[in-house]
Computed example of a mutant assay.
Amino acid sequence: MTGLKKSDVGWYWCSVVDVQVTDALTVTTVVTMTADNEKTSIKETNPHTTPVSSSENSMDKRITVIWSLMGVGLLLLTVLVFCICMSVRKFNSENMRTLKHIAVKSGDSVTIPCFYDESYKSNKKFWCHGYYWSSCTIVAYGNTHGSTSVIDHPTHNMFTVELNRLNTDHSGWYWCAAEIGDKYNPDDKDYLYLTVSAAPAVSVLGSRVSGEEGSSVSVQCLYSAAYQNKQKQWCRSTDWSCYTVGRTHTSQNSTVWIREGIRSFKVEMSGLKKSDAGWYWCSVGDVQVPVHLTVTDALTVTTTVTMTPESK
């Protein structure tokens, strides 16, 4: 600062990123008399001002770099903690799959399918309740019966969870899981949300249907007015594919018809094959209701003709 004035007196600070160092500026008057006392020069100086060496400048730069690196490190640590928390909350594997949001009417029962990889055939299965996987409560293990029944079907690589006499208190987060029992490989699982209410957003007329091979079956899927403009689908677990309104030929040569009505849509499957048997679900928006299809052998009619000798 050159040409100092009395008005320059006050506080100033050096600032590097978010670090400041304050200093006061004092202006004094220095009077210099010549030998003959005829000429006077006046110089305003700041006694607190000292030259800054190059080593001090270098130190300031190093401090700035350290602060910057600490800031970046803190940001990366925050992102890492966030990712870990998210993985603990909602980790799911392709080796364990189920539906994502199931709606049920109060007082009713529901059977939920949980599909697992073939390598889990001999592993213990269980049903867990809780928002966080790390702290969820095991409700029932495989092949147990009661208000919650868990039945393993290793030949189909799946297990079912049957929930009976449901009420609104049963709404919440649940987990289909297989016990791995290895400290290097955590238990495998997938989550879903169950909504139990007096008037569910989506429902079906009959959650279990059966038909003979070559015949047809139909399922009526109902939904509330709030879901009128949501996407309607009929999905199957065989390949996790879904069909929308219209006519579709499946890979098994059977035909799926979906006709939309007033707050409902009807699914008709014709030309049934044994390979069509399995789990399906009505899907409206983000809500699903599971449906099981059984395909039985076609009825064979045998006609017996009895011949009698003619009288002569």
Results as ranks from 00 to 15, higher is better:
Tyr280Lys: 00
Tyr120Phe: 14
Ala277His: 02
Cys14Thr: 03
Leu205Ile: 02
Arg165Ala: 09
Pro290Trp: 05
Thr168Glu: 11
Cys83Asn: 13
Ser68Ile: 04
Ser53His: 13
Val245Phe: 01
Thr29Tyr: 03
Arg89His: 12
Thr300Ser: 03
Gln231Thr: 14
Pro51Arg: 03
Trp175Val: 00
Met59Arg: 14
Asn143Arg: 08
Ala140Phe: 03
Glu94Ala: 06
Leu163Pro: 13
Asp188Phe: 04
Val202Ala: 02
Gln252Gly: 02
Gly142Lys: 13
Ala24Tyr: 13
Val301Arg: 13
Lys232Phe: 06
Asn157Arg: 09
Val16Ser: 11
Asp117Cys: 05
Gly107Cys: 08
Ile84Lys: 11
Leu192Arg: 09
Pro186Gly: 07
Ser264Cys: 05
Ser254Pro: 11
Val245Gly: 03
Ser218Val: 00
Ser119Lys: 15
Gln233Ser: 14
Thr244Ala: 10
Cys136Lys: 12
Thr148Gly: 06
Gly73Gln: 10
Cys136His: 05
Ser171Asp: 03
Phe91Thr: 07
Thr111Val: 11
Val209Gln: 13
Cys176Met: 00
Thr144Ser: 15
Lys125Tyr: 00
Thr64Ala: 09
Asp117Ser: 13
Trp257Ser: 12
Gly261Cys: 10
Trp127Gly: 06
Ser311Tyr: 04
Ser122Trp: 02
Lys121Thr: 07
Cys14Ala: 06
Ala140Ser: 15
Tyr243Lys: 14
Tyr193His: 14
Asp188Val: 10
Lys189Asn: 13
Lys5Asp: 03
Asp297Asn: 14
Leu222Phe: 03
Tyr132Leu: 10
Arg89Asp: 12
Thr50Met: 03
Arg247Leu: 08
Gly181Leu: 02
